[in-house]
């Protein structure tokens, strides 16, 4: 077969399983290869039929207890956003590479996107919606407004939750320290100087 294989991404070569693969000759002599991402739909379907049951989860979010049945695949992020309609916690990359989903899980800052809810039965979660005391903003929230530590606002919840963690951990002692310990939260608008100033100010307020 007069195939020119050099231009085919090695990608397509030997997977998915051969039974699902087609090798076809296109009209202009181009080579066709099937690329089945993931493969094995058949076995997966069987497995999924059995997993439909769901997993029982009890969590406390911002002081409110919740009990719900979840798919074990659900991250805390998806449970917050899609099940509890707590959308202040943002999905930025869903890969642990941006920090927009930062929450406090049992008091520690974590990426909610890489946290399976089913592994945290009984957990205490604080999200950005639970930081203010009623109408009274937390000093860090107020400082974010004062220092304009955001523009679009999409990373802001994660920045503030991460900032609370940063302060609690004792890593907010200087601007340089804050920068290093806040580098897990990307702000594409580039509001970093305001973020640093806000955390430095709130750190003083919280510690005094």
């Amino acid at each position: 077969m007069p195939e020119e294989t050099s231009h085919i991404p090695p990608a397509a070569a030997a997977f998915p399983p051969v039974s699902r693969r087609e090798v076809l000759q296109a009209t202009a002599g181009a080579v066709a290869l099937a690329a089945l991402p993931g493969g094995a739909a058949d076995s997966a379907a069987a497995a999924e039929a059995g997993a439909a049951a769901g997993h029982s989860l009890r969590i406390t979010v911002n002081g409110h207890a919740h009990e719900l049945a979840i798919d074990p695949r659900q991250s805390i992020l998806d449970v917050l956003r899609e099940r509890l309609n707590l959308t202040g916690t943002k999905k930025g990359c869903n890969q642990g590479a941006c920090g927009a989903c930062t929450i406090l899980l049992n008091g520690q800052r974590v990426n909610a996107c890489l946290t399976l809810a089913a592994m945290h039965d009984g957990a205490e979660i604080t999200t950005i919606e639970g930081v203010a005391q009623g109408e009274a903003l937390h000093p860090l929230q107020a400082a974010f407004i004062e220092h304009d530590g955001f523009q679009c606002g999409y990373c802001t919840g994660g920045q503030i939750m991460s900032g609370l963690g940063c302060i609690a951990e004792g890593h907010a002692g200087s601007p340089a320290e804050i920068k290093a310990w806040m580098s897990g939260n990307i702000c594409r608008c580039g509001a970093y100087p305001g973020i640093v100033a806000a955390i430095a100010q709130a750190n003083k307020a919280v510690r005094s």
Binding site: P9, P10, A11, A12, A13, A14, A35, P37, G38, G96, G99, T102, Q108, R109, V110, N111, L114, T115, S162, G165, C166, E169, H171, W181, M182, S183, G184, N185
Partner: peptide, 29 residues
């Protein structure tokens, strides 16, 4: 990052998989 370090275990750190982009893309060899 600080958030990941709060979660990632020492054992898991040693067993983490590679970051080659093609490893992560199912349609790449």
């Amino acid at each position: 990052s600080p958030q990941l370090r709060n979660v990632a275990s020492i054992g898991g750190n040693l067993l983490q998989r590679c970051r080659c982009p093609f490893f992560r893309m199912l349609d790449a060899g």
